[in-house]
Design a protein around this nucleic acid. Structure first.
Lengths: 192, 192
DNA sequence: ATCCCTAGCTAACAGCATTAGCTTTAAGTT
DNA sequence: AACTTAAAGCTAATGCTGTTAGCTAGGGAT
């Protein structure tokens, strides 16, 4: 019988697709193996174990999310870039909720962990959006944390089904981004 | 030998204390039992299983969080109430990260699930803060979702160790709440 | 054609949630 | 005070999942 011909990347991709469908908390070696047409122990030839697999999903997610935000903001500036970045992130999280959950439960393992680099790069994609508002350098960190908190919070609450009221969620999202855009423009240097 | 004299509430409390220490993902029946000086199967006389236990922790968390926000905002209004509510929520999540994670991964089970009531009540505590800004009714929902997203996002990212830069996290938090307070006051009816 | 590395397999083990059935506590009754 | 009884807690056993050990055979290199 022929061989499956797997490698770590394929295993990671299959696992990522799985968690997007069934949720990160239901990640299991058995389901990943089944999806690849292989018996469970075979996976251990490519990944060190379930923890390692989860970590690899997180790296994949950080990379993809960072790229998505970067691509969306290409050639845009100011409020345009903010809207594009925000939409890109929300879209990514909705389409890949499992991967994103993996990303959030991952911690960098060592100083040369690829996850740290991927996460930093993703954060940089978001930070770039704020440069258009030329804020004080110290305010920039605060604004970045705020933006990140908001996008992360909104996306995860939405995916978890947390918004029950019948008001349209898309409307709330654009309202929120508009709110932030206005505030950031008002906070620009002519401070006092 | 004497009996332990447990009941569902005590088991839930012990489990909540456990997850606050070791993380919600490491909840296990064995550790809860050990903490109560009892063998694992004995727990099944009080809770239906691990899923039920997690659900009960979520109800506890929703109740406590709602109360904390409510207590903190007692007798305050406007920006004062907003700051108090925000601080109360962040403080609660930092002190009870495991419970809060249980809250976020819970879903209401039926129409008369106590979790739904507790969650609604907690949300109401937060919504009350916004009444001081007298916004348009439709904007109120948007603002509530924004506030919730932001507080949830900030708290969870902080607890997950997501804020690496050396800028003070407390400063970022107050900056963020100030930002929201300003924006909300500007959005008040004299719209146009 | 042969050699060798290793992907993938089967078998076995360990840990955890859960169930079945027993024992005995301790509360309530007479 | 003796007796009855619902259930708290225990031991033993089952099943599922992650993981390891050791074997087998596929397929590229020589």
């Amino acid at each position: 019988m022929p061989r499956a011909g797997l490698d770590p990347a394929q295993v990671t991709e299959a696992a990522a697709a799985l968690v997007d469908e069934v949720g990160f908390d239901r990640l299991s070696m058995g389901l990943v193996a089944e999806r690849l047409g292989v018996k469970t122990p075979s996976l251990y030839k490519h990944v060190a174990g379930q923890a390692d697999l989860a970590h690899r999903i997180a790296v994949l997610a950080a990379t993809q999310l960072g790229d998505a935000v970067r691509d969306a903001t290409q050639g845009r500036a100011g409020g345009d870039a903010l809207f594009a970045a925000a939409q890109a992130m929300r879209t990514y999280v909705r389409a890949h909720a499992g991967r994103y959950a993996a990303l959030n439960s991952a911690r960098p393992d060592g100083p040369d962990d690829p996850f740290a680099a991927a996460a930093a790069r993703a954060l940089g994609s978001l930070a770039a959006v704020l440069h258009g508002y030329d804020l004080d350098p110290d305010q920039e960190t605060h604004a970045l944390r705020m933006l990140r908190s908001m996008l992360h919070g909104f996306s995860t609450l939405e995916v978890a089904g947390g918004f029950q009221l019948d008001t349209d969620v898309d409307d709330s999202f654009t309202w929120m981004i508009t709110f932030i855009d206005r505030g950031l423009r008002a906070a620009t240097p002519p401070a006092h």
